[in-house]
Design a protein around this nucleic acid. Structure first.
Lengths: 221, 221
DNA sequence: TAGCTAACGTACTGGTTCGTACATTAGTGA
DNA sequence: TCACTAATGTACGAACCAGTACGTTAGCTA
């Protein structure tokens, strides 16, 4: 979500395809996240850029393709963050905890992305399915998880024979729910899951949960 | 989601306020879950009932209030299910596992409800906030969790000093994510989280996770 | 510097969609 | 059985909104 900030010469139009495109994407991300796909207004997006609706159709073709472009960029951001993951110098337990915490942090830092994913799920992930960039894109974090799990199993620290994708789902579900369902959860239980004062509590709870699962003696229960 | 099925006398209109109201709610639930709040079409809802759009406005007042009514009924269903919870005769570990499994089952059995909750979160839970029936409704499951946790702590089975609401969030997040994010997860990782063949796997994984967390020695990690 | 094209703006349209004015009838109680 | 009201149907309007036809200009290049 690289934001566009330029000296902005005072008057008249300046030609800058890249800036215009990026600005449309920025505003569209906010608008789609705010109101959902059908609730988002192309006119509103246009009004909040320094350009016009015409340009949205010029660059993206239509509302649908614009939403796909917004998704593609948002997933690109998380991919980049995951590519920078540097936890494999840690011992497996610490590495997994650190990975979980980074996932936690990223979700918290990008609520718009979480909303976009929720919206995309309402629509059956049809935009992802129709995108060349996104189909079966996977996640760099998965490879990291795979390697940590392997070394954890080898060293005997992890008792469970856990699949990397499953563990990724487990971590993601916790991080995702906390942000995505913040509003209904708060309204029903009177507790803000994203309360900054509770941040550390929820963050360590995630690590505790994952580590407990990976190191548990499966005889119990 | 009590579905309406009556002998349906062949011709002419029958006056049945309750049936008409319930039928509208049934169809509206499907339509809102299908397309989201803004994507849902009042005309479409009307067309799929045995009555007309006029009746939607007669009984509910408008699209917004109809959505609120749909939410109220859906939450009512889950409340009822939770009220029937009968796990306290089990030992704490088995009771928690059973509770988690029932949550798992309910989420899987009511994907429309999950979608409605996702949609309501996109809209900041404003309908719940504006509903007398739903504000701070809480959840019967919470009381059950509270009691199980207490007895588990007393008997020394649970090492962790866990809050009931937090544990409820933990269980819910796993169950919710699996259904709500099924589509994006499937599109990105090529794995269907709701694949019936994997159902038992994910169900026991949830129980293992929760029990491991509750019985773990917090020194690790 | 002429001319060409990518980039941009304006104004409009056609279909959609929530909501309602008005007319009607089924069933009930006096 | 008559009248009254809750329940229902029809037809329409007005606003909204995605998308486009058409015209304009900035800036590069030959």
């Amino acid at each position: 979500m690289t934001s566009v900030e330029e000296p902005a010469r005072p008057n008249g139009r300046i030609r800058d395809a890249a800036r215009t495109r990026a600005e449309i994407l920025d505003v569209a991300t906010q608008e789609f996240a705010r109101a959902g796909y059908d609730g988002a207004r192309v006119d509103e997006i246009a009004a909040r850029t320094r350009t016009t609706k015409r340009m949205i159709y010029y660059y993206f073709g239509g509302k649908e393709q614009l939403f796909t472009a917004v998704l593609e960029r948002s997933y690109g951001v998380i991919r980049e963050a995951e590519q920078g993951l540097d936890v494999e110098h840690l011992d497996p337990v610490a590495a997994i905890r650190r990975l979980a915490e980074l996932t936690f942090d990223h979700h918290e830092a990008h609520p718009d992305f979480i909303r976009l994913v929720s919206i995309e799920n309402i629509h059956g992930a049809e935009h992802i399915a129709g995108s060349e960039k996104l189909g079966r894109i996977g996640s760099p974090a998965l490879d990291v998880i795979r390697r940590i799990l392997e070394s954890g199993r080898e060293s005997g620290l992890f008792t469970a024979d856990v699949d990397a994708v499953d563990l990724h789902a487990m971590i993601s579900s916790y991080c995702f729910f906390r942000v995505a369902n913040r509003h209904t959860f708060g309204a029903l239980f009177g507790r803000d899951l994203v309360d900054p004062a509770q941040r550390e509590h929820y963050r360590s709870m995630l690590g505790d949960m994952v580590i407990a699962y990976l190191t548990a003696d499966r005889a119990t229960g």
